[in-house]
Computed example of a mutant assay.
Amino acid sequence: MGFTAAVAMGAIVPFLVPMFAAQFLLGSTAPMPLGKTLGAALLIFFTGVGMMVLTNLFGDRHATFLILLGLIYFFCFVAQLSGKGGPAIFLVQVVAIMVPLIGILNKDLANSILSILVTGILGGTLLMWLAHAVIPEPPSTRAVATSATVRSPSYRRALANTAILLVAVAACLINDQLSAALVIPITVASLLGQLDLSASGRVAIGLVIVNLSGGILASVAYSILTLRPSLFSIFLIVLAVTLILGGRAAAASKDAKMFAGALTTFLILFGLGVSPVPGSAAESFATRIVFVGAALIYALLLAVLLWPRSETRERQAS
């Protein structure tokens, strides 16, 4: 519903509302309380405002700008690794990636980025409450659901993740293709949030394949849409794919984060395909999937090289 409504209203970034809604819904089996929802919304909103200010002040001073971005990404990764913040932290990362890239690579779109963020936050929040009202979670499921474990963060791992993401953002800042620039660092941030220190090589490769499948599904979905372009077709396509990926992402399993990442990739790529942003049409779909695959492999290889070895051995031993 959120995706179709965004396209119908001519939203410049149609994937934002459904992505916010999906993150809120996957973050908890119960609807977020009003106070917590407002807190998350305000955090995302003020992050967007702050990133706009930083982009306007330091966007032409690349070294200083990248240092400031690195500090923001570092604190986000510390919060993620400590189990705090829930889905709001990933959304803050997405905003801290989107706003600088849009602000530098697309000046016309930069003027409306604040209204785009507000629409995304409000729309995602309303969809979350609507979903819980229409299809409430069974009380038994809520009872067995466990909250996120708060643990001591690994500052060395957070620093490594920051370096990996910052290189991806820096590379995209010199790329004049907005669609490619958006999807690469968001994919990197998503994968870094899914990786586990104790994961085997086979699990890590499976992680890359499942995330890449989200991009492939987006390409197939867009090809189907071109055969019968309509809002109803968009609704059916997004419903079918998100039932497949979202159903696995909502399950109480170790693979849930993996499929949530694939869902995020699908929403972004398919959203860019139907977006009115110049240069985001179907002819670059194959290129964007290549970029997604390269971003996944890049993040995985750099994580293997830069993550603290001692922590990996301790986690595997435990």
Rank of each mutant, 00 (worst) to 15 (best):
M51C: 11
T55Q: 03
P100Y: 00
V53Y: 07
Q80I: 02
F74G: 06
F74Q: 06
F74N: 10
T55A: 12
A41G: 12
A88N: 06
L109D: 13
G103T: 05
L81S: 15
L43C: 06
F65I: 00
M52Q: 13
D60W: 03
L43V: 03
C76G: 01
A40M: 08
I97N: 01
V92R: 00
G35T: 11
V94D: 12
A96D: 13
M98F: 10
G27M: 08
S28W: 02
L114Q: 09
L43R: 08
L26K: 15
K36D: 15
K84N: 05
I97Y: 01
C76N: 09
L68C: 14
Q80H: 00
L57G: 09
T47L: 02
K107W: 09
G50E: 04
V94R: 06
T55Y: 03
G85C: 12
K107P: 03
L42K: 14
L26P: 13
T64H: 01
L114I: 14
N106Q: 11
L26G: 13
L66H: 03
K107L: 10
L42T: 11
G48L: 08
I102F: 11
P87Q: 08
V78S: 12
R61Y: 14
K36A: 11
F58I: 01
T47E: 06
L66C: 00
I102E: 09
A41L: 13
T64V: 09
L109W: 12
I113T: 10
M98K: 09
S28F: 02
I104C: 07
I44R: 02
H62R: 13
F75C: 09
G59D: 04
V95S: 10
S82C: 14
G86T: 01
R61S: 14
K107A: 10
L81V: 08
I89Y: 10
L54Y: 05
V78I: 13
L91V: 05
S82I: 07
V53L: 07
